[in-house]
Design a protein around this nucleic acid. Structure first.
Lengths: 205, 205, 205, 205
DNA sequence: GATGAATGAGGATTCATTCAT
DNA sequence: AATGAATGAATCCTCATTCAT
């Protein structure tokens, strides 16, 4: 059932330089962000991608598969680039700053994607479970590892539960992103990276 | 249009000791939590409340009104009890602890309600905007005021933006709640209150 | 089943001087005329009559019975007054003028009633059959008798089928009434009586 | 919004030699005539047309659009054929006979269509207004013009208001048609054409 | 007689998905 | 591979009617 991969085609269909599959995913992100997953019509996505309704089913298993694929692919690429960036940095506190910045930069770059990520992917318990068990867990583990390492190397206090700290950081970043999406003011999400890192590292006192 | 009030009736209908209106709301919370808002059937809610389908429309304007009402009433009561509790406490750090504890206790008490709050109420941008502008904004303001006061009285550092700190705290609590809902392990949400307060107040370093 | 008669009551309930039964019928005429039979709500009629919804069912068998009763009672009274008027007149042509005038006067006096008569009573074949077999048939017979008498007494030509002439006259009056209802101009329906009589009696040539 | 046109298809779908659109309209006429507009179920129409329920919505905007389309298309074609026939005839009286015959022939040919035309299209003031302002007005104008011409050429008396005569003729034809629909006897509607023309032209005297 | 809260049957419409071309 | 016409399941809500008070 779960397909989410292109039909064998070496004819790189182009439409502003992207493959049909890409165009469909992009259109899905935009339509989901615009109308919400449940109110999004497959035919709208097809129109946005410049393909026939039926064509979507050659590349994806259906509406739900679109949402899952969007999530999977973006999270995967997010985690990879995060890993790459972390590999170049020493020191738990600096690594934390990098992670924070990376989160805000990535989501702050594409509002529609952020909307899908912050809103649409969370429309049901089923979805949240699904995601929190896989990719999100990986992300939380990466954050937790930073904390664990910080504690080992003596940079961070040892009396905080690393898993809890990881969730806390994720929660902060998540809320900042959601708040940014909902804000009527235009501002760069990344600008908050330093204050957040400062708060997490030093605390209020 | 928005009704959300009972037909004039002073016959306190009972069914496990609650009015029809209460029973409908309770059933709605459970069904929304179980199936998600979009997949919840009004007829299921009616069955759960032990009333006819049409009866729901005597008390509410429709499915959407149920969701909105659940949110409104619970947030209102949440904010009131928070205010009451804060009134008895001096010291910004202690007030913060109270707020954190109150948040976790309230949501940790009723899993279905927490699911509705964490998941169903966020199923679309429209909803999130709606809510974040009203009651949620009030809540954030209360948190922010604690920070502002803490800074005035010298308890808290002055180089953190209070609004950002408020959002960060909300984000942490929010994530803890969501994580608790999704967890397969059984644990008391409140147990995390101290660690969270500790992190926020003292930081990682 | 078919009730359409008041519950035994000698307490002449008053509301602007009319009995509950009258008020309900009047409200029904107005609401039917305003919204059409199918879109008319029984609760609207009740409100218009100043009674509770359920009260209507003490006097009538239901929504349909209201419509039927309106028709029956008004047609009956119409036919009676027509008979009374005809009794005083001699000469087929003069009797015809009287009938024409009476039709236009009666309907031209109460627009809501006219709307119910011209529009709502004709919303289905079933209704039209029902009515055309009873009261409407009586009316057509009265018109036909005028023609027959006119032919017997030598006033009218004999080579026209009386039944057809009766229907034709009815058709003309009916169309004039409908046209009057739909007209945006304000004019007295009765004003057309002479022209109509002239046309029917003398013809176009 | 108002669609009433086929999805682009040049595959002339056949089912007893007619397109889907035609079959739907035909089924609608029959079902409306059988049960009345309000009691007609869209699913019945679909079944009658041999298509799925949803297919109707590819060709029409809904139940109401079906009724309107039936009216529009049949009236249009009626008016065109009338015009064609009138073009070949001289003399106001003869033209009038042609119009009368055409009206009765057209409706007398298809009982279901006549039922829809005489009954269902008149189920509410709104509809009657709608129709009486457009196509019906055109028809009345054609009849009026015949009268006006007859008066100009000296064939018809000048002391009758042409508009009133037009309405009267329409009323007669309308009533004859309704009466024919409701009649339990089988007879050809057209057979009454001569008597009607005779009455209108010569009058009763 | 009067009330009006409660009932629950009933149906138009949408839209994800299929499949013949 | 691509199309898009066709499908038909699925559900919210209305409102005539009932009946306990």
């Amino acid at each position: 059932m779960a397909r989410s991969s292109p039909p064998t085609s070496n004819t790189p269909e182009t439409f502003r330089g992207t493959s049909k599959r890409e165009r469909i995913l992009r259109a899905a992100i935009d339509v989901f962000a615009q109308n919400g997953y449940f109110n999004a019509k497959v035919s709208e996505i097809a129109k946005g991608a410049g393909v026939a309704d039926g064509t979507i089913y050659l590349y994806f298993d259906g509406k739900e598969d679109l949402l899952i694929t969007i999530f999977r692919e973006h999270t995967r690429s997010f985690l990879q680039s995060l890993q790459t960036q972390l590999a170049t940095v020493r020191g738990a506190d600096e690594r934390l700053r990098v992670a924070i910045r990376h989160h805000l930069e990535t989501l702050g770059r594409d509002r529609s994607l952020a909307v899908v990520s912050q809103v649409e992917l969370r429309h049901s318990l089923k979805y949240m479970s699904l995601f929190s068990q896989a990719e999100v867990a990986d992300y939380l583990n990466m954050l937790r590892d930073i904390v664990v390492n910080g504690q080992s190397e003596g940079t961070f206090r040892r009396n905080l539960h690393p898993q809890l700290v990881a969730k806390a950081i994720f929660g902060i970043l998540d809320e900042m992103t959601t708040s940014w999406i909902l804000s009527e003011k235009e501002y760069a999400l990344t600008d908050q990276a330093e204050q957040i890192a400062d708060l997490v590292l030093t605390g209020l006192l």
